[in-house]
Design a binder for these strands. Structure first.
Lengths: 179, 179
DNA sequence: TGACAAACTTACTGCTTAGTAAGTAAAATC
DNA sequence: GATTTTACTTACTAAGCAGTAAGTTTGTCA
């Protein structure tokens, strides 16, 4: 599952094969099929695990007790780590590009993960603005959508234009909401 | 090339085949190979044509003589049309997700298109701010990066969450820069 | 010690893929 | 009117793909 997640973020769902995983693990093709009969089930398992991980993190006191700007920083750092660690891309963005050629069950998982991430970010922005830590026009929902989609896009852009472009987007987003 | 462009925006580079194009055109596989010997050459041709089209548009008086807010609107409308027209995604974003599994020559073209788009948007933002039509913190370059990457990301997000989410991102971006 | 299940391997199937070589029919050129 | 070029078709290859059926090893538990 670790390898599948990395391959997904590196090449997308249609860009890796059972052989890629089996090869790196030093086992045969069929060994992976034993644990995940279909590629759809493998994909679903990876995203379900990722969703669980995100849920655990945001409910953990280590993040819950942070200030609003620190919470935003933590969020951006998830994606900075992706960028630094082999130029990975956001799972949601990668799978949405391939949305029309991935199995139905996987599409649902992507939708849930996307929704859950936006819901959390929206709440932070709403509460942070209320508390005077943030300032921005429009609704927290639409501001959350801009921030999340720009970070997603920036991870992709960094593949062609380098890490600096990604950092630029993060810094600009911060400037746009921090008082 | 029209079909290849649509398929690229629908499923990505690894998501379509010569057979898809040949089938829809009512010809055989090899007929496509006659015009584009390799898939890389087909991809390059599509992006080169797109770059040329963008260059022609921005140098056309129809767009050059627009006000700054209208120019920004024209830019957003390119992507709104993508969304409305069969939920297409930005070529640049789609190919950057697959960046690590597409041919070298194609990667270069994606880089050029990305750069050219950002350069134009940056200039509009810089001149527009100078003229008092826009207001934003930070540099025109980083603001351009946020706008472009968020529109790219929003087209992808709309696949899972619907067209409304895309419109939300466009409207928020406008509110963030319009005086 | 024996039964059973978990975690594989071996060997394969049927399908799709990009790409090719040789042949053909029609149109343009000399 | 002969030759060449353009735009294909037919027929194929070699590789890669997800997925499967049957057999094998290894560890666990009664």
């Amino acid at each position: 599952m670790n390898l599948a997640e990395e391959l997904l973020q590196d090449r997308g769902f249609n860009g890796f094969s059972y052989a890629d995983i089996a090869g790196q693990l030093g086992v045969k093709n069929a060994a992976i099929h034993y644990h995940f009969p279909s590629k759809e089930e493998l994909g679903i398992a990876v995203i379900k695990r990722y969703r669980e991980r995100f849920k655990l993190w945001v409910n953990n006191s280590r993040i819950k007790d942070l200030s609003y700007p620190e919470k935003l920083d933590w969020f951006f750092n998830i994606y900075s780590d992706f960028r630094v660690n082999n130029g990975k891309v956001c799972l949601v963005g990668a799978l949405e590009v391939e949305f029309n050629s991935i199995p139905e069950g996987l599409r649902k998982e992507v939708e849930y993960l996307n929704r859950e991430t936006l819901v959390w970010l929206e709440a932070i922005l709403a509460e942070g603005r209320e508390a005077g830590a943030f300032q921005f026009k429009g609704t927290p929902a639409s501001k959350a959508a801009v921030i999340y989609s720009s970070v997603q896009g920036a991870l992709q852009m960094a593949r062609a234009l380098g890490t600096k472009k990604f950092c630029e987007v993060v810094e600009q987003n911060k400037q746009d909401v921090l008082v």
